[in-house]
Amino acid sequence: MKIETLFRHCREAFRSLTRNTWMTFAAVSAVGVTLLIFGFFLVFAFNISFMASELDKQVNVRAFLQPNVTSDDIDQVIGQLKKDPAVKSVKFQSKEDGLRQMKKQWGDDDRILKGLERGNPLPDTLVIKAKNPQKTKQLADSMDQYSQIADKDYGEGVTNNILDLSAWIRDAVFVFGLGLAILAAFLISNTIKLTIFARRREIEVMRLVGASNWFIRWPFFIEGSIIGILGAIVPMTVTLVSYNAVIGILDANGGQGIFKLLPMWPLSLYVAGMTTILGIMIGVWGSMISVRRFLRV
């Protein structure tokens, strides 16, 4: 396509958008509402899957050693575990280490832990990470073969629930988002149908003098993408500003545990990118389905 023709198509698209201000507004709003919901879901889904993967990383087997083991016994178990192909790492945590960590986690409320130094009830512990976090349960079960190990613990239910939840939310977002996108595309298609209706004489003449189908389509194509881009601006801003606010309130960026949220930077890029791309896709799709009818010979 010649650059002159491209300018012409853009001119036509803008003329049509500004001439039908209210219909443009309606179409942009339709895209906007869709994308706003989509944006919130996107942020939610990203964070859930982020939490799940963070949790995956934290999943480990804590093997509690018998109270009477010798350091030779400990070395022996560690040596055997390290040879196990399912094991990624083994870390020894003495009962003193365990108490120190507990105190750190409890923070100012460590008064109840005072006095425990003398009769530390915590066992010596091996912290074992699995090569594949999904197979943590099997790894935990294999601990029974070591006589030096009294008991074991892994974050059972929580991990599985989080993984299930994130998969379910991803599906829900997909289905819900698809429904909304179809709805928005039809709204846009109706809007553009009206602008096409106003210009059907022009299209008829273009066809008579031999304008190619793409020549006729291009302005509507551009019109649809502009509607999509315009429709993406507001929801994108609202989503990111409110997410920033949520991060601020929870002060979760430097926090710990399950409420660790994704930081603004890469997330805002994903959200902005995906929202805009989806907006353009909805816009273009909507305009293409309405222009098709007018291009039949």
């Binding site: 066809r207 008579l208 003098v209 031999g210 304008a211 190619s212 189908n213 020549f215 010979v297």
Partner: peptide
């Protein structure tokens, strides 16, 4: 073919 009809029409004034 349908997409070639415009080029056919360029040779015909109506």
């Amino acid at each position: 073919r349908d997409w070639k009809i415009p080029y056919l029409r360029r040779n015909i004034g109506v």
